[in-house]
Amino acid sequence: MIEIKNLHKSYEMGSSSLHVLKGIDFSVADGELVAIMGSSGSGKSTLLNILGMLDNSDQGTYDLDKIRIANMDEKKAANYRNKFLGFVFQSFNLINYKNALENVALPLYYQGISRKERQVIALNYLGKVGLKDWSSHLPSELSGGQKQRVAIARALASNPKVLLADEPTGALDSKTSMEVMALIQKINNEGKTILVVTHEQDIAEMCKRIVLLKDGVIVEDKKVKQNIIKNV
């Protein structure tokens, strides 16, 4: 599903340049649930943003579902993001003046789906994350866990090939974190490929594979026995 080779990324800051990713080779198969770990500043988010086409790399190749992602104009990139990729952010990134249903329906708007159909699909995904009854609530009226579930529903609404989550539980307490991870496991069990960036060992152990980043390179990549969350 994902295939990257010799990926490099530097940030230019005035005269100095910070080399963050120093040659990443990495591939993810269909249906995997991968945790990306590493200390703060190791380049986890940078990697995820490049995988999510929110940022571009300086060197190396990236294939997403056998399509080479390179030198894409912003219009094409927008279409790829819309069709292939779903995002979940630590800070939720919901649009504050749209209610839960409208937030979830937004990626469908950019697919040109009609309003009626959008609402049906969005409501269905809200149901999937257990928030059917909260569809008319604004983000400000939701708890952190609920917001993140809305964000997950939104990421899933366009039925992407890959779900990318950057510290999805970073702003949540441990109980809510469990709920969100349980949801991620459920979605993964339905066949979706998911990458989760996290700091926390126990969150990582709920995935099927852990990749450890250090100083811009992968130092460890292992399959783990998944810690499956039951009854939350």
Partner: peptide, 12 residues
């Protein structure tokens, strides 16, 4: 930025 991440084209 959010709209772009969700697939809004620059023209849109």
């Amino acid at each position: 930025g959010i709209r772009k991440a969700l697939g809004a084209e620059p023209n849109e």
